[in-house]
Design a protein around this nucleic acid. Structure first.
Lengths: 387, 387
DNA sequence: CGTGGTGCTGCAAAGGTTTGCAATGAAGTA
DNA sequence: TACTTCATTGCAAACCTTTGCAGCACCACG
């Protein structure tokens, strides 16, 4: 029974009916053997299982989904897989989903809002829910799509929808305070895509922090959130005369450093640079990048949890063929904010107003040197998700 | 008709039946309106389309697949999304599939053979075929799985299955010749995973090239194909006394450079390093990496083409409920080999036996400086795929 | 011996779509 | 006028599975 798999090169798909015939029971019994084993006689069960194993039977998930309304699949829509920010999130989501007996299908949109919409439609009937990561489409469109399939949004705040956010505001504040503490008084913020929620949050928080620290903040952008976007603006950064830069993400920061290097501007001696995301790459460039670590893994896990939570209550395509369920009630509006952390490496150094006595160090925050546990939710995850 | 989408927040799925009722025709007519428009009266057609648009009808792909046997989805199984080698491949495959009206679902296996197998099973009934990229499972298992769902293998040679390969053999040869030309006579090859086809090919070709060039080749490994794998072996590289290294991939090469740097060994002054893949990262590290560019985009496109080619001939789950189709005949055994190119940057320099007169340059090959068109198939793609 | 309960199994409908076949009607041809 | 052809549409089976309901046999209890 264990490895009796007969090697009959069966390209012909074997169905539940074949198993039923082979084991001399009705198809419903076979079905129950898999989906409700406690309802079938142990003897019958082993016989059916043996036959199934022997024939190489595998339940057709699509057919099952047609009637149960649950596919046990999750869709994961990503703006750009090539951005190293996402893989950790994807992996975390996949692992979390696997534990819950779900599979994850990833789709890349190439930063194209149209592709995003189309993909949601394509996925709608083949998954139980969709995780929308850093979406580029409008809030209203997202809301509209959320009526077609359960949605959880990551890195974007959409009222009425479950969202997983990272506290980039706090991150930007820490970064600015770090720079101010190093003696920088003229700082540039390299903006990302215009439609990015993260972008707005960073700008808001950075402005406030700069004001509080007596520094001047120049906003440059919007820019493409890539190395190219960063290197392209190097010249402008130099002309602006700032002594420090906070970039929208690590990719831009790295590109900027490249660009400045090409212009003969040295980092961190002449200009300090801070990124956001703490992608693995940021540890490998020279100088190693000072950056705001975002809890991408935790975000992936949390998003999956929220989606499944939301799903469980509403088995779509329920048997009762009527508008019996009150509409709009099942919305889970929980929004989770995850904590970020400043990681200080080699791309930041003393600025023009540095106090010479004090050695360079983090200006505030407990133990800023890459603390072990980023990702602890600020607004209690438990509460929010449970609601 | 264009934007009459009534905003009735319909969470209740609208089916073909609703459209039929609304437009006063039979469901089969509605079905034909979408899947065979030429069979329905133009007037009826516009009426049905209008109703469908109005109700926000979207065909249920799962249900359609149940009867047609074709989902218009492609599965893409990747060993490790976090490896920057893959995103370009994924994007190319997606774009190619989109042109053919197919969607791509990506799944990451975390380099785990078991996960690979499970994913193929999970995907089997939900996609029309699967692209297996750099698989870690055994050839026999792959063959077995290929009876369950059409498969195309990338970066691995499996007899009897369609494969897309990159000519890393040629790449390794070019790299070794480059190093020999620079005056290196003692070279190390940093091996990758043991089960990797690429690994074997490189080793074979590198040995031959070294012998031909009068150099000695030391093989170190196997190693994990990551930065960590590279940096971990730095000490051993130094002890081995070689003046040049060819690494299994760029990630390892970059890790090695890091590791050597930590040991105080300078690249390329003391040791030259060559990678493979030409990931974007290789342009951003310092020194910029000399590497063998692999045509990942072309590989993704070709793989999709081959899969679809193979698919078209065999509409799985055909109507005729018998073993009518001759089994084993439809196998497309085409194997495509894509060309690679050496890209010379800053991580390689003159070795102990360099002839001082000659300035450092590429030893052979036409115009080795990043020619525009890597990815042209060696064995004519057209023929192979068409077979 | 009758009644009720329990454990197991079969029956058939349902889910949303496609598609071969037949029916209809109209137009064209002899 | 009668016959063929064609375009359009309806009918119903089929795809593979799940699940409420009913039937059956068996046991225990009164």
């Amino acid at each position: 029974m264990t490895a009796t798999t007969s090697d009959e090169g069966a390209a012909v798909p074997v169905t539940i009916r074949d198993v039923a015939r082979a084991s001399g029971v009705h198809i419903s019994t076979v079905s129950r053997t898999f989906s409700a084993p406690h309802l079938v006689n142990p003897e019958t069960r082993v016989r059916v299982l043996a036959c199934a194993e022997d024939l190489g039977y595998r339940p057709n998930r699509a057919a099952r989904a047609l009637i149960t309304g649950r596919t046990h699949n999750i869709g994961l829509i990503i703006a750009d897989i090539a951005n190293p920010f996402f893989p950790p999130l994807i992996k975390a989501a996949e692992s979390q989903a696997r534990h819950r007996d779900y599979h994850v299908f990833v789709a890349d949109t190439n930063e194209d809002p149209t592709a995003e919409e189309e993909l949601v439609h394509a996925l709608a009937k083949q998954v139980d829910g969709v995780l929308l990561c850093s979406p580029r489409m409008s809030n209203s469109l997202i809301e509209q799509l959320s009526r077609e399939v359960p949605l959880v949004v990551v890195n974007r705040q959409v009222t009425g929808l479950p969202c997983v956010l990272m506290d980039v505001g706090q991150g930007a504040r820490s970064a600015i305070e770090h720079l101010v503490g190093l003696g920088h008084r003229s700082i540039a913020l390299l903006g990302g895509p215009r439609s990015s929620w993260t972008n707005r949050e960073m700008r808001r928080a950075a402005s406030a922090a700069a004001r509080a620290g007596g520094a001047e903040l120049t906003v440059l952008g919007p820019n493409a959130p890539t190395e190219v976007g960063g290197s392209a603006i190097a010249e402008q950064v130099r002309r602006s005369g700032v002594s420090a830069v906070l970039a929208y993400n690590d990719l831009m920061a790295i590109g900027l450093i490249e660009g400045l290097d090409a212009l003969g501007v040295r980092v961190p001696q002449e200009v300090s640079v801070v990124g956001v995301d703490d992608i693995t790459l940021s540890r490998l460039t020279r100088p190693k990048l000072t950056t705001v670590a975002t809890p991408t893994g935790a975000a992936g896990r949390t998003a999956v949890d929220m989606l499944l939570q939301q799903d469980i209550e509403s088995p779509r395509g329920a048997r009762g063929s009527g508008a019996g369920t009150a509409l709009g009630v099942r919305r889970t509006t929980a929004q989770v904010m995850l904590q970020t952390d400043l990681v200080i490496r080699d791309s930041t150094g003393p600025g023009p107003y540095a106090r010479p006595a004090r050695p360079l160090a983090a200006p505030r925050g407990p133990d800023p040197h890459c603390p072990a546990g980023p990702g602890t939710p600020t607004t209690a995850t438990g509460d929010a998700v449970a609601s």
